Amino acid sequence: MNVLLPLVRSLCTVAALSAPLAASAGPSLLVNGSFEANVIAANSWSVLPSLTGWQGVPNIELRRQNAGLAQDGLQFVELDTFNNSGMRQDVATATGQHYTLSWYYSPRINLAAASNPIEVYWNDVLVTTNGGTGVGSNAHQWQLFSFDVIGTGGLDSLRFAAIGTSDSLGGSLDNVALVAVAAVPEPGALALVLAALGGLGLAGRRSKR
């Protein structure tokens, strides 16, 4: 037992050092990412200056089972209210932490591609542009988009902006999420764990002899 004790202590120390590196990613940091918090009547739509967690730029069009169905829940957002519009949310992040930013986008049903584009910004830097045609479709064509973004350690800004034909009809968004990326243990830490386990097994065999 005296032979094993130092190795057990060593293994516990390595495990403790490695644990933060393998921490769970956890839930989304965004508030109201599926736009279900502000309930409106079924088969309706409403233009609002803001939603729970989101600020309109200058306003946001919320839809519930109207001109398509949501990807998650019952409600989704269309970013072309009376003209091209947008929305933003500021979220606290950790310095240098990587996050997976994801969302679902669909062009509006039976709407030409020129009216559907939406730009996505992280801290006012363009991440990507979504677009596509809805002509000939009778349902939303939800597509998942996912990008890696890095936190600054302060309040970081996520913004979506319609940039197509400003005709009060445009692309739709739903199920927006921002999740911290779980770090992978460094190779050196893994090697230490394996070495400690090997030493523990060897010491066990010697003690039996």
Rank of each mutant, 00 (worst) to 15 (best):
L7E: 09
L7F: 13
L7T: 14
L7G: 07
V8E: 13
R9H: 02
S10H: 12
L11D: 11
L11N: 10
T13N: 12
T13E: 15
T13Y: 10
A15S: 11
L17P: 00
L17K: 11
L17S: 10
L17W: 15
L17H: 14
S18N: 07
S18K: 12
S18A: 15
L21G: 04
L21V: 05
L21A: 12
A22H: 02
A22V: 10
A23V: 09
S24W: 05
A25T: 09
A25C: 08
G26L: 08
G26Q: 11
P27T: 08
P27E: 09
L30F: 10
L30Q: 06
V31N: 06
V31Y: 01
V31L: 05
V31W: 00
N32T: 05
N32S: 07
G33N: 07
F35R: 04
N38Y: 10
V39A: 11
V39K: 07
V39N: 08
V39H: 07
I40S: 09
A41Q: 13
N43F: 15
N43W: 14
N43S: 11
S44D: 11
S44R: 08
S44M: 03
S44Q: 10
W45P: 00
S46P: 00
S46G: 00
V47P: 05
V47Y: 02
P49K: 02
S50Q: 11
L51N: 02
T52I: 01
T52E: 03
G53C: 06
W54K: 05
Q55S: 05
Q55W: 00
G56C: 11
G56Y: 14
V57H: 11
V57D: 12
P58E: 04
E61C: 12
L62K: 04
L62A: 09
R63A: 02
R63W: 06
R63E: 09
R64K: 15
R64V: 14
R64A: 15
Q65W: 03
Q65N: 12
N66W: 15
N66Q: 15
A67F: 14
A67E: 14
L69E: 12
A70I: 03
A70M: 04
Q71S: 04
Q71H: 09
Q71R: 03
D72P: 00
D72G: 01
G73H: 03
G73D: 03
G73E: 02
L74Q: 07
Q75T: 07
E78M: 08
E78R: 12
L79E: 06
L79G: 01
L79Y: 10
D80Q: 08
F82K: 07
F82I: 09
F82R: 12
N83F: 14
N83K: 09
N84Q: 11
M87R: 02
Q89G: 00
Q89K: 00
D90V: 05
D90L: 10
V91E: 10
A92W: 07
A92P: 05
A94V: 07
A94Q: 13
A94F: 04
A94H: 09
T95D: 14
T95V: 13
Q97Y: 07
Q97H: 07
Q97N: 05
Q97W: 08
H98I: 06
H98W: 05
Y99A: 13
Y99N: 15
T100E: 13
L101H: 10
W103C: 06
W103S: 06
Y104N: 07
Y104A: 05
S106V: 01
S106R: 01
P107Y: 01
P107M: 00
P107R: 04
R108F: 08
R108T: 02
R108S: 13
R108G: 09
N110S: 12
L111P: 00
L111K: 06
